[in-house]
């Protein structure tokens, strides 16, 4: 910036009244760098493309109905995803309500009830720091607290509680943003009609912010569905040839089965793993599409 302003100081003005002589060079440089920056964008998109094409070509051959109906097997051609698929659905069905209630509750407290004091600041700082804790550390917490101390064992509920704590910060932050986007006029109008704080929150603020909250929650769950490390930590990686029957059942999930197959030396298992990845990515795509659809369809701008 300094040099730019030097060029146009009054003393130099007479010299530069017409286009500065170095302008063509500077504009050439601008074009070169624009190409470099655009190449970086192209590189990123190309990598995404290679990743997706590679996985599809690798996995498409193993993608058949048997994959959904068979349990894991020592023989790659018979190996299926039945247990991890049902396990992932169980895991999501348990994680969603737990993390939703805790996350939305925390956000409502912070946005609607909390006074701006030290304690509130502590919670807020704490949440942003929790968001940066590596997922494997959450796995260590789950292993000690849920599996051992609370004696839940290597069960679905232990995994779901660990996952809930992991995605809690994401849900809190996105819910806070959704709540903040509700204009205060709506709240004032509600109070003016004689509504209490809770009535205003439940009947005015929440209905207005529910699309934002749901979008944030689904995106958080789509993070949870691909998480592997914390569930390995609590011991989900076991050979499972049965479906979970209750929240205390042992389980496996999609990313863990994919990890298991990736770790085997045989090329055939890598192909089955790729087929599993395709299914996992389709699930993610579905969840993200629903989130985007909710955002576009129901989000009101105030």
């Amino acid at each position: 910036m300094k040099e730019v302003s030097q060029e146009t100081t009054p003393g130099a003005q007479t010299q530069h009244l017409s286009a500065p002589s170095n302008l063509p060079k500077r504009e050439w440089k601008n074009r070169v760098f624009k190409t470099i920056f655009a190449t970086a964008v192209g590189f990123s998109l190309l990598m995404l493309l290679i990743l997706i094409i590679r996985i599809i070509t690798q996995g498409i051959g193993s993608l058949d109905w048997q994959l959904f109906t068979n349990f894991a097997s020592r023989h790659p051609e018979q190996a299926g995803l039945k247990a991890p698929l049902i396990g992932t659905i169980w895991m999501m069905a348990l994680t969603a309500p737990i993390s939703f209630v805790l996350g939305v509750g925390t956000a409502i407290y912070l946005e609607e009830y909390a006074k701006p004091n030290r304690f509130t600041a502590l919670i807020q700082t704490n949440i942003s720091n929790l968001a940066g804790v590596p997922s494997v550390v959450f796995g260590l917490l789950g292993l000690t607290l849920f599996v051992r101390e609370l004696a839940l064992g290597r069960s679905l509920i232990a995994g779901a509680l660990t996952m809930s704590l992991l995605i809690l910060p994401i849900i809190v932050v996105s819910t806070q943003e959704a709540l903040r986007a509700v204009p205060s006029e709506l709240k004032q109008a509600s109070y003016a009609m004689g509504a209490t704080t809770w009535q205003t929150i439940f009947k005015v603020v929440l209905p207005a912010s529910v699309p934002g909250i749901l979008t944030g929650t689904i995106l958080a769950l789509s993070r949870a569905i691909g998480e592997t490390a914390p569930l390995i930590m609590i011991g989900a990686l076991t050979y499972i040839a049965f479906l979970p029957e209750s929240i205390m059942s042992q389980f496996t999930v999609m990313p863990i089965q994919i990890f298991n197959w990736t770790n085997r030396p045989q090329e055939e298992f890598h192909m089955v793993a790729a087929a599993g990845i395709i299914i996992l990515l389709v699930m993610l795509l579905l969840m993200n599409s629903i989130a985007v659809w909710i955002r576009n369809k129901f989000q009101r701008r105030f």
Partner: peptide
Amino acid sequence: LAGIPTIVYGFF
């Protein structure tokens, strides 16, 4: 690109 699970990147 940021939303793809890390196990997929590991496999890749």
